[in-house]
Structure formats: C-alpha cells, structure tokens
C-alpha cells in the first residue's frame, strides 16, 4: 500500500475546487447572505443581534456545509474514479479521510477565516470571538464527517438531497447545541470549557468511527 496516493488525491481535489471557482465559494456566499439578510428581517438592534449571533453564525455554517455534500463522492462515482480506489493497492480508509479533509478545507476553513467579520457584523461581544473561532475549528470537521457519511449512504439514490438532509440534521443537533452553548457562555462571561470539551469528544468519536462507516457505505454503493 502506498501512502503517496493521499497527497496526490488532496492536491487534485483542491485543484478541482479552484477550477470550479464559483461553486466552491457557494458555502461562503451563502453564509454571508444569511448573516446580511436576517438582521434586515429581525431589525438591526445590537442587543437582539448579539443575543442571536452565536446561533445564527452556527446555523448558517451548518447549512453552508450541506451545500457541497452532493459533490463529495458523486462526481467520482459517476466518472469511474471511485471504483479505482478498490483495486487493492490503495489504502481506502485513508483516501476517504483525505477526501473529507479536502471537503473541510473547501467548506469549513473559509467559514472559520471569515468568522471574525461575521462576529463584527452581529455585534458579538469581543470576549466570545476566540471561543466562536475555537468552536468552529472543532465543530466544522464534525459537520464534514457526518455529512460525508450521509453523502456516502445516499450515493446509490438518484440525487438524494432530501434524504441526505434528513440523515444529517438529527446527527448534527448535538454539535449545534454544544457549539452555540460554548459561544453564548463566553459572551455572558462564563467558562465555555464544558461545552468545548463535549464538542471535542464528539469530534474524536466522529473521527474514529465515521471514516470506517463511509468506507463501508461506499463499498455497498459501488456494488
């Protein structure tokens, strides 16, 4: 088994993402569309916005990560690239993790980088900004992992976006609760450690189990 396949795959995924340009930036545009439109709807008062800021940023990040899921495995499935993973000399679970990493780099990382701007737009208290970034850093990989599992399971269905969303939503509820809990606690001046600790535990759990489950789900759909 050659581990050289992993950086090669990562590089190609990122190159494809750059070549798709607009499509890859969709999640980020979506995030800011929500963050700009909601204050117009509920009224721009700083007190109200500061209260709902953690929840809004997180819900927008969650929905943004859903946007790119349909393209996680399906193009590879349709053009025959995916079946090449099973030729026997490639570490399939490693390839799955590489693909999920590239998904996170494309959808998760830009959200984290632009989170300070989003926080400013919604009057999030300054002492909560660090915790918001940290919660996104721990939480968005979980979104990519769970989303990847749903995408792998629905690969055989005909463009199963609805099924995909139904599978993802219950699984990401804990992520949303602990992440927004951490940011809200920090904004109110309390310690966010308990929430962040539970979030990190969820990440460890997802990181351990999901790649194996994704590998099995892809294998089922290849057959």
């Amino acid at each position: 088994m050659s581990l050289r396949a992993l950086p090669a795959l990562l590089l190609r995924d990122l190159r494809l993402a750059v070549r798709h340009g607009g499509e890859s930036l969709m999640p980020l545009f979506f995030l800011f569309a929500v963050l700009i439109l909601v204050p117009l709807g509920v009224g721009p008062g700083p007190n109200l916005l500061a209260t709902i800021a953690p929840g809004m940023i997180w819900v927008a990040a969650l929905l943004a990560s859903l946007l790119a899921l349909e393209n996680l495995f399906r193009p590879d499935f349709e053009d025959g690239t995916l079946e090449q993973w099973w030729l026997g000399h490639l570490p399939v679970t490693g390839l799955v993790m590489t693909r999920l990493l590239s998904h996170w780099l494309i959808t998760g990382l830009p959200v984290i980088l632009f989170a300070p701007l989003a926080a400013q737009m919604l009057y999030l208290p300054d002492q909560a900004l660090g915790v918001l970034m940290l919660s996104l850093l721990i939480g968005t990989p979980i979104l990519s992992l769970i989303g990847g599992l749903a995408a792998a399971l629905t690969l055989g269905t005909n463009r199963g976006s609805v099924l995909l969303s139904i599978l993802v939503f219950p699984l990401v509820v804990p992520v949303l609760i602990f992440a927004t809990g951490a940011v809200a606690a920090a904004a109110d001046g309390f310690s966010p450690r308990a929430h962040l600790g539970l979030l990190a535990a969820l990440l460890v759990l997802a990181l351990t189990l999901v790649p194996l489950a994704v590998t099995a789900a892809l294998r089922l759909n290849i057959e």
């Binding site: 190609r12 053009d79 025959g80 079946e83 090449q84 030729l87």
Partner: peptide
C-alpha cells in the same frame, strides 16, 4: 497489482 479500465474512463473532465 491490477489496473482496471472500464466503460467510465476514470478521468476528470475539468483537468
């Protein structure tokens, strides 16, 4: 090691 060349060409159209 095996190489498999199927109906689907396993090529990326954008590259």
């Amino acid at each position: 090691a095996t190489a498999f060349l199927g109906h689907a060409s396993a090529l990326k159209a954008e590259l």
